[in-house]
Amino acid sequence: MHNEVTVMDEHHHDNDATDVFGFWLYIMTDCILFGSLFATFLVLNYQGMLPSTLKSHINLRVVLLETFLLLASNFTYCLAMLDLYKQKIFRTQVWLGMTFLLGGSFVFIEVREFIQLAAEGFRWDLNGSASSFFTLVGTHGLHVSCGLLWILVMILQLPKLKGSHIANRRMTYLGLFWNFLDIVWIFVFTIVYLLGAM
């Protein structure tokens, strides 16, 4: 009987490993999506086709704050993961809640920035450079928003999944996704904001 349970467990792990690899492949295709958007942005902004008007609208302090919010949320997610492995479900939920608040602040600040840009006349339909800016940064923001929804669902699901291998698997998916978004943000703030402000 004991043997059978171990075999079942091994079986789950093998399946889960394949599933996580599948999710990793999804992340890789998402990289290509962002790569295309970065290529578009670079072509339309830095090749002398149109004088970019983005520079005068960039507020680097706000971007720095956004960067740290996302970096901190990444770290709190890792802490949630550590507590999940120790089977401390409540503490996992608390860290996930922190991650949600940090990520939520990021999206809030970004949306406010977009509204302000539009009010100042830098609208998405102004020219190609503006369109590529809003598409690139907006796609990232949309991913973060989806991640936030996912975190909320996870917080609600965790007590039901307690101790099961499904909890580990789903948290691993979400962790990959959340880390990936922070990595994309490194390039967004470097290429869009820092280069744009120079």
Binding site: H13, L64, F75, Y85
Partner: peptide
């Protein structure tokens, strides 16, 4: 023995290291 799906063992020290290093580099760039 948590399954790690090829992602290595989870350790607080490595996360902290990553967090501090990224913070310093971000501040430097800005």
């Amino acid at each position: 023995h948590q399954p790690d799906y090829g992602t290595g063992q989870k350790k607080l020290g490595i996360y902290l290291l990553g967090f501090v290093a990224c913070s310093i580099l971000t501040l430097l760039a800005f």
